[in-house]
Design a protein around this nucleic acid. Structure first.
Length: 531
DNA sequence: TTCTATGGGATCTAAAGTCG
DNA sequence: CGACTTTAGATCCCATAGAA
């Protein structure tokens, strides 16, 4: 005899199958008549199918009800505390937590604390805050102004719910971690993971003493219970943006944020007109204003890169700041100036010092060794020391950061060169006059001014080594060839000769800002700001 | 040594798409 | 419109690397 469920063969009829454990009391005895056996077997099969249908229906019912009622997912929550190396998870304290994907950070925090308190008797009865794995407080989706929900966070990090781990830590630990980071004056720049304090009414407020280096609103900002209160009182940039966002365009948000900036008094009027004109020409519908506002909105207000700048050597301080591995172009900037003897200026950066720093930095960049040429028609040139120190890359990055953070551009590059640099012009042209080497300039002028083919050939022969170096020495068939030779040489002189420098400079603009919408549009933006 | 994070494969489920 | 197929997402399990 066989079990109708699992097929296990058994000799003695029992009430339950010894293989699958199911009720088989309905299975007829072996010694029944053939006819009876046949009909009963039929019944058994019918019962089996009935049973299977019932199970199937049950399974479907379960799935449907699960879909409606069990709209929960499982994530992990752990505990962080302050250690020497910063905020670190406590090992062995992570617990799974069933949550609704639409929960906000406040609701999630409540559930996480309850779960952790249930399983950990040593949980203090104090105020906790919710943290991302990097130790920053959970309020918005990182890099955006979108309020946190588990669902959005899951999409942003691209992990499954099961792989998401969030942490709680005591408010005390979080604040002490921030204060110690702020007081760490050994390093010029630290990452501060709380919103920089800004006042909607003033650009610059007094820089408080080291003893009270944490401004009062920052102390309160991580408080969950006071979150909404803080938002009203502090009026951070992002909040300003979000509150005014309902009735303004993103560009208006940007201009509101950075309204006080004066890029270049001599060119700002013309720039505005050009900006408008160019906006209409933007082929993909995305204006430069949109691009810059999009980029500005991507700046992470919850983390700041701090720069200590000596006014006597702005370049040096900036260069060290941008070289740090911890520096991110997407972070906000907090600048603190000091004078020649190292005395700090008593001002907290809420925008004004940053813009002043960026203006001074752009002035410093104009005189760097990687540029050559006239004041407003400079070109990139190769400098081995600068290349060794990756100066091309960092200067490119500084320019991009300056523009996005509301500062000026260097306003010194040749228009032709810049159009080529940003990919607007595929071919490059420049006047011979821009060449700084007097001998080369003289030679090219001789070629250009040749009046006959024979004279051109003689001059070409005379400067053959120079032309061969640039790969444009050729046999002159007509007098018109002189234009081609001059153009080729200029292209080599400004572009191909400095190709690596240009690539490095360009590379900085491509990597400075992550997830930037449209490099082409960004280059258009650069054109606006630099000219 | 233990714990945690992560990658990859297998499996299941729901939603979307296709077809008669 | 219903049956069937395809696809994406979620989950489980195992192996592995790295941190504490």
């Amino acid at each position: 005899m066989y079990c109708p469920f699992c097929g296990f063969q058994f000799e003695n009829l029992t009430k339950f199958c010894c293989s699958c454990g199911k009720d088989i009391s309905f299975v007829p005895a072996k010694d029944a008549s053939t006819e009876q056996e046949h009909s009963r077997a039929k019944t058994v099969v019918q019962q089996f199918f009935k049973y299977r249908e019932g199970k199937e229906a049950e399974r479907r019912m379960f799935s449907k009800s699960k879909k409606k009622s069990m709209k929960t997912v499982k994530i992990s929550v752990g505990i962080m505390n302050k250690q020497k190396t910063g905020m670190r998870p406590i090992r062995g304290k992570s617990l799974p937590l069933h949550v609704d994907p639409s929960w906000s950070s406040e609701r999630l925090l409540g559930a996480a604390i309850k779960k952790l308190k249930d399983f950990n008797q040593d949980m203090k009865d104090v105020e906790y805050i919710l943290l991302y794995p990097d130790g920053s407080q959970i309020k918005n989706i990182p890099g955006t102004d979108t309020p946190f929900t588990i669902e959005l966070y899951k999409e942003a990090v691209g992990k499954s719910y099961q792989r998401i781990t969030l942490f709680v830590c005591t408010l005390e630990d979080f604040l002490s971690e921030y204060v110690s980071a702020s007081e760490d004056e050994e390093d010029d720049e630290v990452i501060v993971r709380v919103p920089p304090v800004t006042s909607p009414l003033s650009d610059t407020v007094l820089w408080s003493s080291p003893e009270s280096s944490t401004p009062e609103p920052i102390r309160r900002s991580p408080s969950i219970s006071q979150t909404s209160d803080v938002q009203v009182q502090c009026g951070t940039e992002s909040q300003m943006a979000s509150t005014s966002g309902e009735h303004t365009t993103s560009y208006n948000i940007y201009t509101n944020i950075y309204a006080p900036v004066v890029i270049d008094s001599s060119s700002s009027d013309a720039e505005g007109e050009e900006l408008q004109k160019e906006n209409c020409d933007e082929p993909d519908g995305l204006t430069a204003a949109d691009v810059i506002s999009n980029l500005a909105l991507k700046i992470n207000k919850t983390s700041c890169s701090r720069f200590n700048i000596n006014r006597a050597n702005v370049w040096d301080g900036a260069y060290r700041g941008f070289r740090r591995s911890s520096y991110s172009p997407n972070s906000g900037m907090m600048v603190k100036f000091s004078d020649d003897v190292g005395l700090a200026e008593e001002a907290i950066d809420t925008g004004g010092p940053t813009r002043e720093f960026l203006t001074l930095l752009m002035e410093a960049i104009r005189t760097r060794r990687i540029f050559e040429g006239k004041d407003y028609a400079k070109y990139l040139t190769f400098h081995s020391k600068a290349a060794d120190e990756n100066e091309y890359f960092y200067i490119g990055r500084m320019i991009a950061v300056s523009i996005v953070h509301g500062g000026p551009g260097p306003c010194c590059l040749s228009p032709n060169f810049f159009m080529y640099l940003v990919g607007k012009d595929k071919t490059f042209e420049a006047p011979i006059d821009d060449i700084t080497d007097e001998e080369i300039k003289k030679a090219l002028l001789e070629i250009k001014n040749a009046t006959s083919l024979s004279e051109l050939r003689v001059i070409s022969e005379k400067h053959s080594s120079m032309l061969q170096t640039a790969g444009c020495y050729r046999f002159m068939r007509t007098l018109e060839d002189k234009k081609k030779v001059v153009a080729d040489y200029i292209q080599w002189y400004f572009i191909y000769r400095n190709y690596l420098s240009i690539q490095s400079f360009r590379g900085s603009n491509n990597t400075g800002f992550s997830k930037r919408p449209g490099t082409a549009s960004f280059t258009l933006l650069l054109i606006h700001v630099l000219h």
